[in-house]
């Protein structure tokens, strides 16, 4: 066991859960940070205001990949309101704790997801595709 990355982060980096792309989605959100080069794409199926299915793909460091992957698990079955409530602190705890210098990597996926859901609600449409720059 090393003190930098939890086993969970290393596992999720190598074998991310829910990796891929949904063909049948209501939201497709692509977001990233051009200065670090990380990119994440969420495809989300919404039913009765809840996340029915979600996948993610992209390329990123261990922390951003693990964080986005874990997030897809966490938000499954949740309402949009509930997703908004997930805090950075909670995310950090779920990941087993990350180093201070890498908070931005951890929150990248969450920021993209939050923004995507917001845009979806605002649009009033059944299907949207958005690009988000963090």
């Amino acid at each position: 066991m090393n003190e930098i990355y939890s086993e969970l982060i290393l596992d999720l980096y190598k074998n991310p859960l829910n990796y891929g792309e949904l063909k049948n989605f209501n939201i497709k959100a692509e977001g990233g940070n051009p200065s670090c080069g990380d990119l994440v794409i969420f495809t989300i199926k919404i039913e009765n205001n809840k996340v029915k299915d979600i996948k993610f793909k992209g390329h990123g460091c261990a922390i951003s990949t693990a964080s986005s992957s874990l997030l897809t698990e966490k938000v499954l079955g949740k309402t949009i309101k509930e997703i908004k409530k997930i805090s950075d602190k909670e995310l950090n705890e779920m990941l087993g704790g990350i180093i201070q210098t890498r908070i931005k990597c951890m929150t990248l996926g969450k920021r993209v997801l939050d923004k995507a859901i917001e845009e979806y609600k605002k649009s009033g449409k059944n299907k949207i595709k958005v690009t988000i720059r963090i």
Partner: peptide, 13 residues
């Protein structure tokens, strides 16, 4: 198999 940010973080430790 390792992202550059992760290389840097390990070295930083």
């Amino acid at each position: 198999g390792v992202h550059p940010h992760d290389v840097s973080s390990v070295l930083d430790r």
